[in-house]
Design a protein around this nucleic acid. Sequence first.
DNA 1: TGCGGGGATCATAAGTGATG
DNA 2: CATCACTTATGATCCCCGCA
Length: 275
Amino acid sequence: VCGGKVEKIGDEVAYRCINASCKAQALERIKYAISKGKFDIAGIGDEIVEKLFNLGYVKDIADIFSLDARKLFLAGVGEKNALKIYESIQKSKVIDYDKFITALGIRYVGEQTAKLLANKFIPIDRLIEARLEEFLEIKGIGDVVANSIYKFFRDENNVKLIRKMLENGVKIIYPTEGKESPISGKIIVVTGTLKNFSRQDIINLITKLGGKVSESVSSKVDFIIVGESPGSKYKKAQELGIKTISEEEFISLTGKTLTELIDIIKKKNDELKLF
DNA sequence: TGCGGGGATCATAAGTGATG
DNA sequence: CATCACTTATGATCCCCGCA
């Protein structure tokens, strides 16, 4: 299609372009990613993507998420539609892990296979770094598919694209999220000043993740988060032999990045504003 | 090697919103 | 209200993988 070199692999019927920067392929990948069962961006389809692509506003799927209504308007979308599409892009940024994997457009990986991967490799970095044998272990994935997935993540450009999507605000919802977290059911005490969270923020965060915040240290407390210049609670925790962790350790315990945690706090605060 | 089924692609029809 | 431009839904079809 793009006039570049093509290659026929083995007995395959189709010829496919082997040019890594093939324009036509890049475009098709974007169209695929925004469609149903993947990012599912309402109000935008092949035509608009092509226009945005040809204008240079969108070079890869990650660019979609940094679009503003003005660029859509310049691509020939009506004013009202431009706003609507902008809204649906923002909504689509929060995406289930399996759909995210499907959207990557890995060869031989559709909805079903993506689900298999989504349940085994959490978070996304585990998937990127997974060894070939780990894919082969999965029932339903054989030699060809395993190799295809493994090769995909060995390509630096693919990994970069994933990072770019996350930077542009895409948030992956992992299958375990909401059901259970390492924090849920835990009684937690906070003492001292934290670097990234105000006292109210950390309380909101722990509550949102299903934990309980206690104001005093007792033997029932699971662990105590210690910030700068801790108060008497720290001393008492040591006496009782309660596990103490730093702010950084707490963050890694949640299994989320700092930005994700801040997002959670923001949402929680927005909920509270309604009342 | 054959079977069952997922993955990819295509065709067509129906739905939606903007516009004059 | 009719038309246009696109999107969205559905089904058919074929390739080819996983597995017995």
